[in-house]
Nucleic acid binder design. Structure first.
Lengths: 194, 194
DNA sequence: CTTGCAACATACCGATCGGTTGGTTATTAT
DNA sequence: ATAATAACCAACCGATCGGTATGTTGCAAG
C-alpha cells in the first residue's frame, strides 16, 4: 500500500526526537503529525495510544541505540581504556542537542519512572543490561583489576555518574562541567586496575 | 488582614510538595488551590504567574533547605568522614517519597533547565554553591588529602554521582541500587585522603 | 471487475490547562 | 465613621491536550 511500514518508522523516528527534546508528557501528538505530514487517524492506526507509542519508541529506537553505543567501547581487549576513550570522546563529540537535551534514557527515567509502571520497568531493564555489559567486560579482564572490587556496584556507579554528568551539562549549557566529571570518572575507572 | 503571609507560605509549601511529586509542568494550579482551600484569585494575588510561583518555591523553599542540609555534614572537623556518614545515613533514612520522587533540585534540572532560562540560572547557581561548599570544606583539610586532586572537579563529581544515584532509585523503586552507588562513592571519597 | 480490508483523512469530543475579569470582604489609616 | 486598599472569590476565557467516530482512498485477492 502506501508503505505502511515506512509511515510507522517515520512516526517512531520523529517521536523519538520530540521525546528527546521535550520529554514524553510535553511531547504533543499534533506536532508529530505535522512533522510527519500525516493525520491523527494514521497515527492511531499504528499505535493505540500515546503511551504505547512511547513504549515503541523506547524499545525500537532507544534500546537498540544504547546497546549498540555501549557495546563498541566494551568489546575490546582492554575495556578499561576502551571505556575511558569512549567517555573522553563523548566530551568532545557531544552535539549541542546532547548538551541541552541530555540522555534520552536518563530523561525518561527522571520524568516517567515514578509515574508509569510500563516505562519504569523498561528503563530498569535497560539500566540492568547496561550494568551487565560493564560488569561482563570487567570480569573478562579481572586478572588486571583490583581484587577488592564489588562487581555490579562499580557498574552502577559508572552509569550513575555519567547520568549525573549529563544533568550538569544541561544547567550549565556547556561541556565544561561535563568534561570535569568525566575526567574524574576516568581517573576512578583507571584506578580500578591493579 | 486574613494573614496574607500565612496564605503565601501555605501556597509555597504546597506548591513545593506538588512540584517535588509531579514536576513543574505537571503540577496543576487547581490542585494547589484545592489543597490550600483558596481561590485562583488568591493565588494570583500573591504570584503573577505559575512560573513566578515556581521561582519563589525554588528560592524560598528548596534553596535554604539544600544549603542547610549540606552545611551540616561539611562543617565538622573531618568533612571527609562527615560527608560519608551523611551519605550513608541518607541511604538508611530515605523516605518512600524520596526514593520515588528523587531530589527536587535534580528533578527541576532535568525537567526545566533546557526549557526555561530563569530556572536554569537558579539551578546552576545552586549547583555552584553546592560545589563551593564541598571544595571549601575539602580545602580546609587539604593537608590530609592527596596532592593531585583537582578541586572543583572532585566536588562536581560527587554532586553528579549523587544525582545519578537518586535517578537509579527511581527506576528500581528501592534503595538497593542507591545504596550500592553511595557505598562506592564513599570508597572514592575516603580514597581522597593521603 | 468487484469486493474487502488495510491505510489513511477529517471533524469533533470532553477535559484540563494557565490566566483574566469583575466583583466582594476584611482590615487599616485618617 | 468612612474612605482606601489589600486580600480574596466565582465565573469565565481561549487554547491545547489525548482520544474517537465516521468517512474516504488505494491496493490486492478472488
Amino acid at each position: 500500500m502506501r508503505d505502511a511500514e515506512q509511515t510507522r518508522q517515520n512516526i517512531l523516528t520523529v517521536a523519538a526526537d520530540e521525546i528527546h527534546q521535550h520529554g514524553f508528557k510535553a511531547t504533543s501528538l499534533s506536532v508529530i503529525l505535522n512533522r510527519c505530514e500525516i493525520s491523527k487517524g494514521a497515527l492511531y492506526h499504528h499505535f493505540s495510544s500515546k503511551i504505547e507509542l512511547g513504549y515503541a519508541v523506547f524499545e525500537e529506537i532507544y534500546t537498540p541505540m544504547f546497546l549498540n553505543v555501549w557495546h563498541t567501547p566494551l568489546d575490546v581487549d582492554d575495556p578499561i581504556e576502551g571505556l575511558c576513550d569512549f567517555l573522553t570522546a563523548m566530551t568532545e563529540d557531544m552535539s549541542c542537542s546532547e548538551v541541552v537535551c541530555g540522555c534520552p534514557l536518563n530523561n525518561l527515567c527522571e520524568e516517567m519512572a515514578n509515574v508509569d509502571e510500563g516505562f519504569r520497568l523498561r528503563i530498569l531493564s535497560m539500566q540492568e543490561q547496561l550494568n551487565q555489559l560493564i560488569t561482563d567486560a570487567f570480569e573478562r579482564v579481572s586478572d588486571d583489576l583490583r581484587t577488592d572490587l564489588a562487581g555490579s556496584q562499580v557498574g552502577y556507579f559508572i552509569v550513575a555518574t555519567l547520568n549525573g554528568a549529563t544533568s550538569l551539562s544541561k544547567s550549565s549549557r556547556n561541556k565544561v562541567l561535563f568534561q570535569q566529571v568525566i575526567a574524574e570518572l576516568c581517573l576512578y575507572i583507571r584506578a580500578l586496575k591493579k
